[in-house]
């Protein structure tokens, strides 16, 4: 009987934590997604909408004295005049570029005629071309497929280099004590301490001299510099957590060091290795600063996004570009998550 209130209590706390986490993560993302679907006109409306809209409630008014037409859009409980024109194609262009509404000249002419024959403002519904921002993004971002592959290549190489070099160092750091082992592990950290912003300048000059300019591999080399150290430290801390006795026991039973490593140690450290590969992937995938200096004709996707929509004064297209960039890395994270998750509680000691 006494368990009940306690259980109810812990359940409530549990649900509260769940709700807080979900909302702090998801809420900003929802608003962000909505902006990526917003037209220029909608992008800065207040209060901001949490979900994207599909159409506008609007009115079309004929101004007899000037023979012009005024478009009014619903804002709160009133309508706000946004565009007055006499010209059909001007109206159509405005709808396309500012409202993401595709109306042919004929359709506009029809609306104009109807409005002319109505005494008061004509209520109309303007349907949004929902994916307009994304379509525009792909029109602007020439060679996005190429850029996608460049990004994948750069990320793949970064992961390979960091995992192999970093993982080996991590294992050695955790398992062996040699003369310079402390010096080594600290100097790995020093690599991360030097701000990359300043280092990239001389490094780029050097890489150019090696004739690697404008290749994905050169990017991976730069990305791997801090990531090797990161991987080494993460994996070594995990290897340290795996008891040496376990490895020794296996070796007593005749397993070679390599076999022990592959069958006992490696599986136990797998989540950490996976986690490190996620860092390496994201570092390579999301970078546009290094790519800006080191590539020109073969941009990565992140650089392409930055180049095409980065300088927009309205955030809707940059948001759409960022979503395009985000999708592959979310897929990767999702796959990775399964591997981290797979070993949960299944570690047999």
């Amino acid at each position: 009987m006494s368990m009940r209130p306690g259980k109810l209590w812990s359940r409530t706390v549990f649900l509260l934590i769940l709700a807080t986490i979900a909302s702090t993560v998801i809420l900003p993302i929802l608003y962000f997604l909505t902006i990526s679907f917003a037209s220029n006109y909608e992008a800065y409306q207040f209060p901001a909408k949490i979900f994207p809209t599909f159409s506008y409630s609007a009115q079309l008014r004929y101004n007899a004295e000037k023979d012009s037409y005024t478009l009014l859009l619903k804002k709160g409980s009133t309508y706000e005049a946004v565009k007055t024109t006499q010209d059909v194609s001007d109206f159509s262009l405005y709808c396309k570029s500012q409202l993401n509404v595709l109306l042919s000249s004929a359709a506009v002419q029809e609306l104009f005629n109807k409005a002319k024959n109505t005494d008061h403002a004509l209520p109309i519904k303007l349907k949004k071309d929902f994916f307009r921002n994304y379509i525009v993004f792909f029109i602007l971002a020439e060679g996005s497929m190429c850029a996608l592959f460049n990004s994948l290549k750069a990320a793949g190489w970064t992961i390979l280099i960091s995992l192999i070099l970093g993982g080996v160092s991590g294992y050695i750091m955790a398992r062996y004590k040699f003369k310079f082992s402390n010096t080594f592990s600290t100097s790995l950290l020093v690599v991360r301490m030097f701000p990359a912003v300043a280092l990239s300048l001389p490094l780029v000059v050097y890489i150019m001299k090696m004739n690697l300019y404008d290749t994905s591999f050169a990017l991976a080399i730069v990305y791997a510099v801090p990531n090797i150290a990161l991987t080494a430290w993460i994996t070594s801390s995990i290897f340290k957590g795996i008891s040496v006795e376990l490895e020794e026991a296996a070796m007593v039973f005749g397993a070679t060091r390599l076999k022990t490593l592959m069958t006992i140690t490696f599986p136990l450290a797998f989540p950490a290795i996976i986690a490190s590969s996620l860092y390496a992937f994201l570092a390579a995938w999301n970078d546009s600063i290094t790519a800006l200096i080191m590539t020109n004709n073969n941009p990565t996707l992140a650089l392409l996004v930055y180049r095409t929509v980065g300088s927009s004064t309205i955030p809707n297209l940059p948001a759409a570009g960022a979503v395009v960039l985000l999708v592959p890395s979310l897929i990767f994270t999702f796959i990775i998550k399964n591997y981290i998750n797979q070993l949960w509680g299944k570690v047999a000691l």
Binding site: G143, C146, F149, L152, K153, G156, S216, P267, Y339
Partner: peptide, 26 residues
């Protein structure tokens, strides 16, 4: 578990492998 590891590594090799010819084609 071993299988998952193999697929994981395979995915990368495939990705990198895939990328090169497309790159050249482009």
């Amino acid at each position: 578990m071993a299988k998952s590891r193999v697929t994981f590594i395979a995915v990368f090799l495939i990705l990198i492998g895939l990328a090169s010819p497309f790159f050249v084609m482009a």
